[in-house]
Simulated assay, not measured.
Amino acid sequence: MNKIRRRQFAVGLIALFSLSVQAQSWQVPKPSPGLMPNPAAGKTLFAKHCAACHGTELKGSDKGPPLLHRIYEPSHHADAAFQLAAKNGVRAHHWKFGDMAPVPQVTSDDVAHITAYVRSEQRKVGID
């Protein structure tokens, strides 16, 4: 391995280790046991808490990214990512809208309903 590749590998390992340690300290919020996430309830909650940035039709705005995008498909951003985003906020990493602040007024149950709504809308456009 040449010197540049060794350095890139070392930097990559450090970054991976740091993300792993950070992720291990996060507690993923969990909805109430037995909750049946309801997309209709999620649509109302989305309109109240999320649409200002993510757009009324989940297509984004000048303040936030579209959730009807392959980046947010379940295999790339699992439902737990929505729970963590609402609780902790998100550092900008896919888009140039800036960091997402935490949304403390939404509960874990609210986020479960919102996620159910987002997933149902994603399926309608072929994102699953």
Results as ranks from 00 to 15, higher is better:
1 M>V: 15
1 M>Y: 13
2 N>I: 07
4 I>Y: 15
4 I>L: 15
6 R>D: 10
6 R>L: 15
8 Q>P: 09
10 A>T: 00
12 G>C: 07
14 I>C: 08
15 A>Y: 11
16 L>S: 10
19 L>W: 06
20 S>M: 12
20 S>E: 09
21 V>M: 07
21 V>I: 12
22 Q>P: 03
22 Q>F: 15
23 A>N: 14
26 W>N: 11
27 Q>I: 15
28 V>N: 03
29 P>H: 03
30 K>R: 15
31 P>R: 02
34 G>H: 02
40 A>W: 10
40 A>E: 15
42 G>N: 07
43 K>C: 04
46 F>I: 10
47 A>N: 11
48 K>N: 15
49 H>Q: 10
50 C>D: 10
51 A>G: 07
51 A>F: 08
53 C>T: 05
56 T>N: 14
57 E>T: 09
59 K>Y: 00
61 S>K: 01
64 G>H: 02
65 P>N: 09
66 P>A: 12
67 L>C: 05
67 L>A: 04
68 L>E: 01
69 H>R: 05
70 R>I: 14
71 I>N: 08
72 Y>E: 07
75 S>N: 12
77 H>W: 03
78 A>L: 09
80 A>P: 02
83 Q>P: 03
85 A>S: 12
85 A>M: 10
85 A>G: 10
85 A>C: 06
85 A>N: 11
86 A>C: 05
87 K>I: 03
88 N>S: 01
89 G>A: 02
89 G>K: 08
92 A>S: 08
92 A>R: 00
94 H>C: 05
95 W>E: 13
95 W>V: 06
96 K>I: 13
97 F>Q: 05
101 A>W: 07
104 P>R: 04
105 Q>T: 14
109 D>T: 08
113 H>I: 06
114 I>L: 05
114 I>A: 02
116 A>W: 07
118 V>Y: 03
118 V>K: 02
119 R>D: 05
120 S>W: 04
121 E>F: 01
125 V>F: 06
125 V>P: 03
126 G>E: 06
